[in-house]
């Protein structure tokens, strides 16, 4: 007996993500999901970002890693709630993990939830976490062709952050080529150039982040 099914495999994840999104929309909580290769500087960027957001915005952080609580330790101490999600092997965060751990960082006045995904440019792009925006990071010590090699995440992202720009004088990295490659996959994607070490470019990125909760309030 042949059965026509047409069932989406991601449906279970996407239902949980949709429920999270509804909850966050109602409360006007903006949610940003940071995705990059391991070592692109997601945690360093978050350290700088939290430092800047202190006193300006009520933030919570969920940080995903396969092992260790190191990132959560680094990100605590800025006055915001931070929770490590250990995926014990899984290469990405799923909506169910966010649903389980979010209550631990939630506060009544929450405006912005920052999610640091597991370092990986492929798998996280397929999983909706209920976020408003995925942000892809690429550091200047990686290849200019990253967007072409990993087009999925660049297509789904709503902003790109180029990190470690303080290293540019020591590298043969061609920033314009990276920009062209990003534009080829995702025209008009906002691109921020930052150095978490020197603080260069951080304010433009933080302004963009601060704009997210404002957009949500307007949409309500």
């Amino acid at each position: 007996m042949k059965i026509s099914l047409e069932q989406r495999v991601m449906a279970a994840n996407d239902e949980i993500a949709a429920a999270l999104r509804r909850q966050w929309d109602e409360r006007a909580v903006a949610v940003v999901n940071l995705v990059s290769s391991p070592g692109s500087g997601k945690t360093a960027l978050l350290e700088r970002t939290l430092e800047q957001l202190r006193g300006l915005c009520a933030v919570a952080v969920l940080v995903g890693d396969i092992q260790t609580e190191n990132d959560a330790r680094r990100l605590s101490g800025y006055g915001f709630r931070v929770k490590q999600i250990l995926t014990s092997g899984a290469c990405h965060l799923e909506a169910s993990m966010i649903a389980k751990h979010f209550p631990r960082v939630d506060t009544q006045d929450l405006q912005l939830l920052l999610i640091e995904n597991v370092g990986n440019l492929v798998c996280p792009s397929a999983y909706d976490l209920g976020e408003d925006a995925k942000v892809v990071l690429v550091s200047v010590t990686e290849g200019e062709d990253k967007p072409l090699k990993y087009p999925g995440i660049f297509r789904r992202a709503q902003a790109a952050v180029v990190t470690k720009i303080d290293l540019l004088p020591y590298l043969d990295f061609n920033l314009e080529e990276l920009r062209r490659n990003i534009a080829e996959i995702h025209a008009d994607l906002p691109v921020f150039l930052v150095s978490s070490r020197t603080g260069d470019g951080i304010s433009a990125w933080v302004d963009w982040l601060l704009g997210r909760p404002a957009v949500k309030v307007q949409q309500r």
């Binding site: 042949k2 059965i3 099914l5 069932q7």
Partner: peptide, 24 residues
């Protein structure tokens, strides 16, 4: 034109199954 929306090729779908049931 670049004014396009993806309509297929962006999903993983269990489209069809063939089963043997007890009634057969």
């Amino acid at each position: 034109s670049g004014a396009v929306a993806v309509t297929r090729g962006d999903d993983l779908i269990v489209s069809e199954m063939e089963v043997r049931g007890n009634e057969n």
